[in-house]
Design a protein around this nucleic acid. Sequence first.
DNA 1: ACCTGAACACCGTTCAAGT
DNA 2: ACCTGAACACCGTTCAAGT
Lengths: 223, 223
Amino acid sequence: MTASGYNRRERPAKPALSREGIVAAALDVVRREGAERVTMRRLAKELDTGPASLYVYVRDTDELHAAVLDELLGEVPRAAEGDWRSRLWTVVSTYRDVLYAHPGLARVALVTPLNGPNYLAIVDTVLGLLAEAGVPSGPAAWTVDLLLLVATASAVEHSTRKDRPDAERQHDALAETVRGLSPETHPNIVAASENLFSGNADTRSRWAIDALLNGARTTPLPD
Amino acid sequence: MTASGYNRRERPAKPALSREGIVAAALDVVRREGAERVTMRRLAKELDTGPASLYVYVRDTDELHAAVLDELLGEVPRAAEGDWRSRLWTVVSTYRDVLYAHPGLARVALVTPLNGPNYLAIVDTVLGLLAEAGVPSGPAAWTVDLLLLVATASAVEHSTRKDRPDAERQHDALAETVRGLSPETHPNIVAASENLFSGNADTRSRWAIDALLNGARTTPLPD
DNA sequence: ACCTGAACACCGTTCAAGT
DNA sequence: ACCTGAACACCGTTCAAGT
């Protein structure tokens, strides 16, 4: 205001705001500091403005997160080599891995209906693979949702835990609790305890997808 | 401090803090104002103290939320009438309904491993029903997880949307987007569009459970 | 020991006012 | 029209200090 030379900054020039610019800056912050730091205020600081300015281009934080997520979903391969089963596994597990890698973003995939181009491309690919897999077209439509829901939920489950160092301890606490259960009060848990904690995240995911697929193939939609 | 009569309050006496008291107060707030308002600060106000005091009895907000959720899970019936399929449906859908009814709490079920008594009772019940359903004991252990994961994720999906009045509009926006898709770029979505949005939440849930079960029965654990 | 005021480091969103 | 400073109404968690 007073000093006329003050307008010169290190950053060449303050670029005009735009939706694209905001999403791009958000992507940058995601990669540098994680999705948790993609907040309106943090982003405004990044763009050298106040948080109110962002609301001209973006409805709210969730919408921004969804836009960033769709951008990241560009990494998910549309096609791959191999039979339908391994291609399906590739797509779904890559989708899940993107969410794994961005803990703060997995939540938004559950909370707002995604409708970005990359998300839609994935849905289309999965539907194609389900047809190849012999899932009838009725169940297939519901199966995509279920498949992506499971992938998303697994990511939220796993990734948020990675975040917190006491998570392993908490998981151990659960295993401990289960070990301490009496066969009198919890007969079925005690009987199943061997398998309750077996397998790693990947093995279990893969089994879940297979089971889902086998179920979808044999379970007709209700009339 | 200065006025000696100030200690007399409407509330009979300030009760000593305790974990039970805190959880009870939290439950109260959940029922009166919703789970979103169960924050450390809000609760401290309720208990007439500062937020720091709660940390003596509760590790963090998530742990508090998990404790409240377990309390609410007491509503889920352990047994019910009918064959295994309808009993399983009752348990799983009641579990989901509890989460539906408490949007802010569904998240915690995904994020922290639950290990409260009521949760464990539900797991035991479901394991019993899966045995009755003829699911082999290996897959059964993984199926409980998957079943409750799907129920939880559906609750997060649906309930958070109920929260926000523009959610329906957003869903319509998705349907609109899908309708506008070209068969050239998204052949499978266009072909499936009839079923993509068919069915209500309950119908789809029920189908998902059936499909899961059918899959679990026929998909052996990997070696 | 047990408890807590006050501080630190943040949030999302709105709206009146400025250019 | 487009943009934004400042305010409103909150957060979780820690820690030095008090009883």
